[in-house]
Amino acid sequence: MTEGKIIKALSGFYYVLSDGKVFQCRGRGLFRKQKVTPLVGDYVSFEAQNEREGYILEVFERKNELIRPPIANVDQAILVFSAVEPDFSSVLLDRFLVLIESKNIRPVIVISKMDLIDDETKPIIERYISDYRRIGYDVIETSITTKQGIDQLLPYLKGKTSVFAGQSGVGKSSLLNALRPDLHLKTGDISTHLGRGKHTTRHVELIEIGGGLVADTPGFSSLEFIDLEAEDLPLCFPEFRALSDECKFRGCMHMAEPKCAVKAALENNEIPSYRYKHYVSFMEEIKERKPRY
């Protein structure tokens, strides 16, 4: 019995990396009985006569998993957001950050297409970058054209399983091609009719880059807070989490409660107003969510 990690799932086959070799495996029938579906990123035990004929015997316990895209045991999420084309969206970034924080996955923010910003856009983008760095996030400014930030990003990948995610058209595949030029991943142009990018990635696959494994995913097909409860949302905002002990009430939701340290920080301009606005919007969305039966 051998152990390895699933790096690709396609057409009923699971491709397992073990000791530098990739084995094509099928799942045993017991997974259907146990209602376990092997995911890319899973650590598994398997048996194989050769590299083309193997069977997965057991899926080991996961430290986390994402449903869309389907991947397990993620160490960090590289959230790629373009400065322009499409325009930078702080509300979309915050939505991604909350989803990633809720899974205890480390986020790294990458701002792409920095070479395309003009004099009017530059101070706006620089303010966002400053805000997120002050919160405690790593923010890397990149450009495929000038190669800015590529060498800075590479060390983050070493020894980690990373997910590249972000809005369509921000240049995820182009960035991966820059990090490992022999990949030749297909890239998509911005659709001028829709104003957004065309999806270029069709399945989840872990690729070796920079001494780690990187998932180029089809993107998050759902950005809804399906599994997130209202009381968990404050924990997904690091700057709120840091202040929560100073609130008068334990378990403060930072909404209507008196003597709330988060609202005091907001009034003193210590927290970006758009972050709190997004928090309130997300809280309302979670509370209005229809219960599942």
Rank of each mutant, 00 (worst) to 15 (best):
N73A: 05
F96D: 01
L79F: 09
D42V: 11
Y43G: 01
R134K: 15
A77D: 01
G29Q: 08
C25D: 02
S45C: 00
I71H: 03
S112D: 07
I109W: 03
P123T: 09
T145V: 11
P107V: 00
F31L: 05
V80S: 01
S112Q: 05
R52F: 02
P70F: 07
I125W: 11
L99D: 07
D118N: 15
I125P: 07
S90A: 14
V110C: 13
M114R: 11
Q34F: 12
D42F: 05
F46W: 07
S143F: 05
K147G: 05
Y137H: 10
I56K: 00
R26L: 08
S130W: 11
D75W: 09
D118H: 09
R106S: 09
N73P: 10
K103C: 11
R134I: 04
D118Q: 08
R133A: 09
G54P: 02
T37C: 06
T142E: 05
P38E: 02
K63C: 03
G27A: 15
R133Q: 15
R134M: 11
A83I: 00
F60I: 02
K147C: 04
D138A: 12
G29P: 06
I71V: 15
N50D: 15
R106L: 14
D118R: 11
F23M: 01
L39I: 06
A72G: 06
I56N: 00
E101F: 02
